[in-house]
């Protein structure tokens, strides 16, 4: 069969890297990085995913078509999240014409609690 054979050593090294990343992300969650805490956690998760997809799942050694298929799901998920969050992030940001600015401020504050 055509698939490339990768040495077990590579797999073990990838696993070690995954474990180190797990340790890092766990450690990072114990430290307060403010707004960057979630960013760090997600970035590490993406790196872990890439390691699994590229090496364990052999995408690195596969055809361009495989790359496209592997990326499509994530790309479409990003479309869904971006456009939906586009709604939730901008709700209540336009003042209705029948409300004065102070009235509207009270409204939005009570909405977002």
């Amino acid at each position: 069969m055509s698939a490339k054979i990768i040495s077990p050593k590579t797999y073990v090294l990838v696993w070690l890297a995954l474990m180190i990343l797990l340790f890092l992300t766990w450690g990072a969650s114990e430290i307060n990085f403010g707004v960057f805490s979630p960013v760090i956690a997600i970035v590490i998760a993406v790196i872990k995913m890439l390691l699994v997809v590229l090496i364990f799942m052999h995408v690195r050694y596969s055809s361009r078509l495989t790359w496209v298929f592997a990326a499509a799901g994530f790309l479409w998920l990003m479309i869904m999240i971006t456009l939906t969050m586009g709604d939730y992030l901008t709700r209540g940001t336009v003042r209705p014409q029948n409300k004065s600015i102070p009235e509207w401020k009270v409204d939005t504050e009570s909405q977002s609690r």
């Binding site: 869904m80 709604d87 901008t90 336009v94």
Partner: peptide, 20 residues
Amino acid sequence: FLVWGHHMFVAGPSVYAGLV
């Protein structure tokens, strides 16, 4: 895939989302 919000214009999404 980018246009589904036009089914929801009166359902109360944000005005900006509606415009987009």
